[in-house]
Computed example of a mutant assay.
Amino acid sequence: MDKNARIFVAGHRGLVGSAIVRRLQAEGYDNLLLRTSNELDLRDQAAVVSFFEQERPEYVFLAAAKVGGIVANNSYPADFIYDNLMIEANVIHSAWRSGVTKLLFLGSTCIYPKLAPQPIREEYLLTGPLEPTNEPYAVAKIAGITMCRSYNRQFGTRFISAMPTNLYGPGDNFDLQNSHVLPALIRKFHEAKIAAAPTVTIWGTGSPYREFVHVDDVADASLFLMRNHEGNDIVNIGSGEEITIRDLALLVKKAIGFEGELVFDTSKPDGTPRKLSDVSRLHSLGWRHRIGLEEGVRATYGWYMDNNMSR
């Protein structure tokens, strides 16, 4: 990509989009097209068509999406499928119509079957039933992948798709009601430390394994794929490393300096026993993650301290 290329980062204020903007700016790309959702509602077809006709972006990072945890997905399934279908349909279609050079569509590893073999390879897509709690979101993301492939086949576009695993980092959601496990643990341990609480309660047994990748690594991989990957093959973005929830809690406890004990509430569900992405395709292209989990958690806690009221 030329340093002066017109680059549209859709969803630039979200966790992934903001990291992509940081990465592009660090690399010297300064002709970025950025619009808030108030300035450009990506669910509005006419507005998206008008934006692409006027601005003529050459490259598109499609990181805009309606996202949330289990509670949000269970409570608003219609919102999750409608908003995500509209966003990707409008952006991908307008990208083709306006002659975009290349587009990267970002999804999630939740697109894979609930009981997919581990580690999860890209070819396991559509080989079994999805996890019911986030099926509307996953179906929308699968539709986005299929759109990219279909436009490539029919129109010769260069639209690629990548599926990040569990993300964390600066800009994350730390709300205890609807955040994901890692930011929730950071906030829990921080508040327990401030209150000098004797214990922190963790849901479940602590035995499930999870994989995490820092959002700055995902942004770096996204730029790498935009430069180096072509074709219809989706690519997992992850660390390829897993950790139990118990060990993750101990790691967060250490990073934050909480002195109390862990209590596991085994009446609460554990969820899927293991969810690890196979990242051999990404490794074969020449990219590996750089930010270790302990280093990343410390940096994310620093960001939380700088950007939240509770100290």
Score class of each variant (00 low, 15 high):
residue 53 E to L: 09
residue 54 Q to V: 08
residue 56 R to L: 12
residue 57 P to Y: 14
residue 59 Y to G: 03
residue 59 Y to F: 14
residue 62 L to Q: 02
residue 65 A to Y: 12
residue 65 A to V: 11
residue 66 K to E: 11
residue 67 V to L: 07
residue 67 V to P: 00
residue 68 G to L: 07
residue 68 G to Y: 11
residue 68 G to P: 10
residue 68 G to E: 12
residue 69 G to L: 06
residue 70 I to K: 05
residue 70 I to P: 00
residue 71 V to S: 00
residue 74 N to K: 12
residue 75 S to E: 15
residue 77 P to I: 09
residue 78 A to S: 08
residue 78 A to M: 11
residue 79 D to Q: 10
residue 79 D to L: 05
residue 79 D to T: 03
residue 80 F to W: 07
residue 81 I to L: 08
residue 81 I to V: 11
residue 82 Y to N: 08
residue 82 Y to W: 02
residue 84 N to D: 12
residue 85 L to H: 09
residue 86 M to N: 05
residue 86 M to C: 06
residue 88 E to C: 03
residue 88 E to K: 06
residue 88 E to T: 14
residue 89 A to C: 04
residue 89 A to G: 02
residue 90 N to C: 02
residue 91 V to F: 04
residue 92 I to V: 14
residue 92 I to T: 11
residue 94 S to W: 04
residue 96 W to S: 04
residue 96 W to N: 03
residue 96 W to H: 11
residue 98 S to H: 01
residue 98 S to Y: 01
residue 99 G to I: 02
residue 100 V to A: 10
residue 100 V to L: 04
residue 101 T to Q: 14
residue 102 K to S: 05
residue 102 K to Q: 02
residue 103 L to Y: 10
residue 103 L to T: 13
residue 104 L to K: 00
residue 104 L to F: 13
residue 104 L to G: 04
residue 105 F to G: 03
residue 105 F to W: 10
residue 107 G to M: 15
residue 109 T to G: 04
residue 112 Y to G: 08
residue 112 Y to F: 15
residue 113 P to T: 13
residue 114 K to N: 08
residue 114 K to H: 07
residue 116 A to L: 14
residue 116 A to F: 13
